[in-house]
Design a binder for these strands. Structure first.
Lengths: 339, 339
DNA sequence: CTGAAAGCGCTTACAG
DNA sequence: CTGAAAGCGCTTACAG
């Protein structure tokens, strides 16, 4: 079934069928109804190979925006963007990347606007969970610019698709790892992430809930926040360990593992404290080799970036993401051997 | 840069450029040289979007062949085949699947021949590591039918690409998991796989070598072979455990985990024996829920199947696999929480 | 509101 | 050995 055949069946031109298919309007209601009926009856679906060839003429620009500055986790996400971009050169696709540091809503809004000015056709963003961002995504949608959230999602928004990990399950996985590492006996200190990132909150909840269930003998001694910042993480861990020298195990919810490790080493606890963390970024890998970090839970950052851009391309070709509105990475447990 | 532009620069028709690009011959040597030089100078590469549209007319058939019968691991690989096939309908691609039971070389050869008769343009096969298979792959290559090996590779062959896991590293990962599970103290029984499958051999070697290094106190008490068969695995484990009641830990190198578990349960060792195995097939998951299997190392079977078909398609479009001659899956550690 | 034509980049008969 | 034309399926001006 092709557009041509549909056109013949309806006694109209291919142009008219195209107008109906892409809701360009300017078609007599009766004609439109006939065409829609025929499309439905024949089970017609647009052939993406044909569509792909026409995409090239528009040279579509995908806007990408992540808080990657000072956070090496995102190096991999960005590498995934670039890999997908490379695969799409033949379709004339470009990825316009903007980065920021930290989680300031005003800054994120400003960068989204810059991308809009630059003429992006799809937005790929790691959104702050704030209603002003949600509102901007809605406005973009009204303009015909769909949004894909990557790495972390935003509640109640009209984003077309989320590409990232399942945070609650990631937290539970970390709890399971904690059981293997501690044998169910520990005085635990927790270093949390950023409270305005939905994922970080869900991950911590998942961890604590499941840990209570499977390791009732692990005592959570204290919690501090690293704010996704190395220095902050270092200082807060230092203070926590001074307050509670009985802590023998640490759980780092988000980034900042290196800072936490520095504090542990400085206090001379390297041989006695065990750490479970997230993501195999280079500095964490270093600490794994040193034996301080026993295991990490990973969320396939490269694949997140790659799939987000591919999903944007799917939207271009088909109007929707073929994978549905969520593309969820697996939580992987990594130890030294399978890094 | 398009074919059209190259043609203009050389003062020939697009057809002639096409003949050179695809080595169809029948071009005057001087003309060919000129065209090749121009292509090189301009850095021309074929646009896959254009090529894709012409693929449809040929309705290419990919032949797929795996020893999936009686081995549920391959259900996922096949699901990956199907998923990729679905994505390629618009290009007229079909996957013709043949399955077999066990690892008989004659049978594998016969099925490859059936696929050839059926007109396959690319072969995707889980090859037995035997020189007769290697020879057949060579013959196919001479006929212009490239081969992709999936799940396990074959030595010295001229297959274009291998899609599967890194077995030595998978074995090492299992050793690392073993350390976490046992704390470095165990009387270990090993249930091995199939000796004519390259991957199984490499995995076992990787495991034993690394285990000796990181857990010198783990004693390997005995080894038996499961031959990738449930029943066999059951009987061999039973005998091994009767011979060596001191065994408190089992390592299952390949499939057959369920048989091993049945033997353990039957002997009343369910509460005392710990098992590390491979692949989260349903029956193994059941044993994980029961607490008998503590952790498994997985090799992304779905992705293996998916990527193998995608690689076949890449070959169709570009003549090579863009990912190089090996597409290697990650070894993932799975526990109950991240299944 | 609608159709005819040209185009995206590559390939395939066909004619010479 | 080579070129001109038609085609894969969709979209885009343009003319009416």
């Amino acid at each position: 079934m092709t557009i041509k055949e549909i056109a013949q069946l309806c006694g109209v031109s291919r142009g008219t069928v195209d107008r109906v298919l892409n809701h360009r309007g300017k078609v007599k209601p009766e004609t439109e109804a006939l065409i829609l009926r025929t499309i439905h009856r024949m089970g017609y679906t647009k052939n993406i190979a044909g569509k792909a060839l026409t995409v090239k003429k528009n040279a579509p620009v995908f806007g990408a925006l992540v808080s990657s500055e000072g956070n090496p986790f995102f190096d991999e996400v960005i590498a995934g963007f670039r890999k997908a971009e490379e695969e799409l050169v033949d379709y004339g696709v470009t990825v316009l990347l903007k980065t920021m540091r930290g989680y300031d809503v005003g800054r994120q809004l400003a960068l989204i606007d810059e991308l809009t000015e630059a003429g992006m056709t799809v937005l790929v963003v790691q959104p702050i969970n704030d209603e002003r961002i949600e509102e901007r995504i809605r406005q973009l949608a009204e303009k015909g610019i769909p949004t894909i959230t990557v790495n972390t999602d935003i509640e109640n928004s009209c984003r077309l698709c989320y590409v990232g990990s399942d945070y609650p399950s990631g937290g539970e996985t970390a709890a399971g790892v904690m059981r293997m590492v501690t044998r169910g006996q520990a005085n635990l200190g927790i270093v949390t992430g950023v409270s305005t990132l939905l994922g970080h909150v869900q991950r911590l909840e998942g961890f604590e809930r499941h840990l209570k269930e499977i390791c009732p003998d692990i005592r959570v001694v204290d919690r501090v926040s690293a704010m996704d910042d190395m220095e902050h993480s270092y200082r807060m861990t230092l203070e926590m360990l001074r307050r509670h020298p009985e802590i023998d195990t640490l759980f780092v919810t988000a980034s900042g593992t290196y800072g936490t490790c520095r504090a542990v080493i400085e206090l001379g606890y390297e041989k006695t404290i065990r750490i479970v963390a997230f993501d195999n970024v280079p500095s964490t890998v270093e600490m794994m080799r040193r034996g301080l970090v026993r295991a990490v839970v990973c969320q396939q950052p490269f694949l997140q970036g790659y799939q987000a851009i591919r999903a944007a391309f799917d939207i271009l070709l088909t109007g929707t993401t073929k994978q549905g509105e969520q593309i969820i990475m697996e939580n992987q447990i990594k130890i030294l051997e399978n890094l």
